[in-house]
């Protein structure tokens, strides 16, 4: 641990400090959106969106290297595909009420497959593991700017519409009867989830997005009595997992993404066991 703190103050380790800043700031959005995702029970939607992001990254690489649009960073492709996936999933779940899970499952796999096909047709070799499993140490200043923008949007949205969002998540039918456009709020929530997922992909990778989105909120849910308490606790746990994950992965030379997830998973398991023991007494 001391080794990690020393490394942070080393001027050569700019990348480590950047990773810590991004992880800490991103925890704000992760905790808030994660709480919505857990209480609204849409974590599998977030999973589908994250795998569609791979399609966008593949398309981005293709456009950049084959089509020749140098400025088109794969992250643009990621953002576009995430929003597109959110809109498709939202439309399906709002209007075609049956077989929603089938559509989501199909989208999940198709997103992944199109990404691989794009990469097949793109000249050059790309190491996809940083996208699949995340590499917080590759994070750039652009990511830091993205995190700040997302935080402002997510926090603003939540503070401004807290009561309406609570009503929509708790009982969307009743919310509609109170004159709230529940469908629009649901769509907006899915789009914000999509943007958060893009950031999560940078930190823990496509495959592990759901874990860092839902585990902090699930742990928080064991203690929180109200939604805003759940959000604050989820932010705290998300920061805690990111910090300890980074420290452990640096000290033992492990991949950062999986380390963060395993720590989060262990804490969740311990909390579940303890609450179970307390309840049975």
């Amino acid at each position: 641990m001391i080794e990690f703190i020393n490394a942070l103050s080393d001027p050569d380790n700019e990348f480590l400090r950047l990773a810590l800043y991004v992880g800490t700031l991103a925890s704000l959005s992760f905790g808030i959106i994660g709480s919505y995702v857990v209480t609204r029970r849409i974590s599998y939607l977030a999973g589908a969106i994250s795998h569609c992001v791979f399609g966008g990254i593949g398309a981005g690489l293709y456009i950049q290297n084959k089509v020749g649009l140098e400025w088109f960073d794969p992250m643009y492709g990621a953002v576009i595909s995430a929003i597109l996936a959110a809109v498709i999933i939202g439309t399906v779940s709002l209007h075609a009420q049956q077989r929603e899970d089938t559509v989501i499952g199909a989208l999940w796999a198709i997103g992944m497959a199109t990404g691989l096909l794009f990469i097949d047709r793109t000249p050059g070799y790309f190491d996809m593991s940083s996208y699949l499993f995340g590499d917080i140490l590759l994070i750039s200043n652009i990511d830091l700017q993205l995190v700040v923008i997302l935080d402002i949007i997510v926090v603003g949205f939540t503070v401004f519409f807290y009561n309406k969002l609570l009503a929509v998540c708790f009982d969307d039918e009743f919310a509609r009867l109170r004159g709230i456009n529940a469908g629009a709020f649901y769509m907006l929530l899915l789009c914000l989830t999509a943007l958060t997922v893009v950031l999560l992909v940078r930190v823990v990778g496509i495959v592990m997005v759901i874990a860092l989105l839902t585990i902090p909120a699930a742990v928080a849910g064991q203690f929180a009595k109200r939604l805003w308490q759940m959000m604050l606790l989820a932010i705290f746990f998300c920061m805690l997992f990111t910090w300890t994950g980074l420290a452990v992965s640096y000290s033992y030379r492990l991949s950062s993404g999986p380390t963060i997830i395993v720590i989060a998973g262990l804490v969740y398991l311990i909390v579940l066991l303890f609450t179970r023991i307390i309840k049975t007494r």
């Binding site: 807290y162 609570l166 009982d171 919310a175 109170r178 004159g179 939604l227």
Partner: peptide
């Protein structure tokens, strides 16, 4: 149809009835 693990107090639930009477969300 309500989620029985949703973190809300009785007051939170009852206050939802006030939405639509006010203009904003507060």
């Amino acid at each position: 149809h309500l989620d029985m693990q949703f973190p809300v107090t009785v007051m939170d639930v009852v206050l939802m009835g006030r939405l639509g009477l006010n203009r904003g969300s507060r």
